[in-house]
Structures are given as C-alpha cells and as structure tokens.
Design a protein around this nucleic acid. Structure first.
Lengths: 66, 66
DNA sequence: CCACTCTGTAAAGTGTGCTTTACAGTAAAG
DNA sequence: CTTTACTGTAAAGCACACTTTACAGAGTGG
C-alpha cells in the first residue's frame, strides 16, 4: 500500500523521531512505514491522520484493488 | 476501537458469510471484528469501506485518543 | 577533529490479525 | 422431526506490526 507520509512529514519540518514521539511508536516503525516495509495498524493510521489533520485516505492508498 | 459494521451489514441485508466473501476474509474474522475482539488491518478496513462505499472514518471510530 | 542529528538497517522477541477445522445454539421451512 | 442458514466460539498455527538494542553512514557546526 502506498503512502505519502514522508512528504507530509518533511513538509511539516519533522524528523522521523519527532513523528514517532507524536504518535507514540518507535522511530523504526515510522521509518519502516515510510519505506513501505509494512502497513501500519488501523489504530496507528488513525493517529497519523489525526496528527496531520486529514483523512486516512489522504495519506494511504490501497493502489488498485486485489 | 468502535465500529458500526454490524449495523451496516444488516442494513445491507448481508450475512457475515456474504460480507466475508465480498472482502475476502473468513467469516470468523468478520464476526470477531463486529464483536470487537480485534481491529482489522488497514487493508481490510479499506476493503470494508469500499464495499460500503464510505470512508474508513465512517465505519471505525478510535473513540477518544490515548 | 569532534560532537550531534538524522536516517537506514539488523536481530530477537511479543502481541495480534487472520486462517482452518470443528462443534454448538437458535430460528425458519419442509 | 429434520434440514438448512446464520451466528458464536474454541484451538492451533502462520504472518506481520511493533518493540528494544545496537551499529553504520551522511551532513552540519563547534
């Protein structure tokens, strides 16, 4: 699943560590999600969307059904 | 995390089995999610939202931050 | 040169999302 | 009474989301 986390984070002037603290996960988790190693849990997706004040759908994209 | 899956499903006149087939998971998974035993993965949340033609936020609610 | 920040990555461990198989209870329909 | 459809639940197993600790490389600033 694609996401634009990195773009949003950089535009917000945050480091991976900053964001990790803000949504209460490890820096490695943020890094892994940005790099597409795995998808976040639904709960973390909600926290990220709330942090960037947008819809989950605005950050994550299932990129064509399966 | 709260959700209104059961209401939506019943209003759509579907059984748990119908929905399970539609979003390609087991009937037990649908049952567990409806009964709040666990939250779906982000991907499954997307499939459910697409199935009911609504936003993820319209089905799931993180019910007050932690 | 040294300290500091940021990022990438690896390994081992925990919890949980989801699976399959299986059985029990309820309700409607023959 | 028997069958059929739907739901609830349990156990065992696999995959992955996330953790902690740890190390390496690039860039910046003293």
């Amino acid at each position: 699943m694609k996401n634009n986390l990195r773009e949003r984070r950089e535009q917000a002037g945050e480091s991976q560590g900053d964001l990790a603290v803000a949504v209460d996960v490890s820096r490695q988790s943020i890094n892994a999600i940005e790099r597409g190693r795995y998808d976040p849990s639904l709960e973390l997706a909600f926290k990220l969307a709330r942090h960037y004040d947008c819809a989950i759908e605005a950050i994550f994209d299932p990129e064509l059904a399966d």
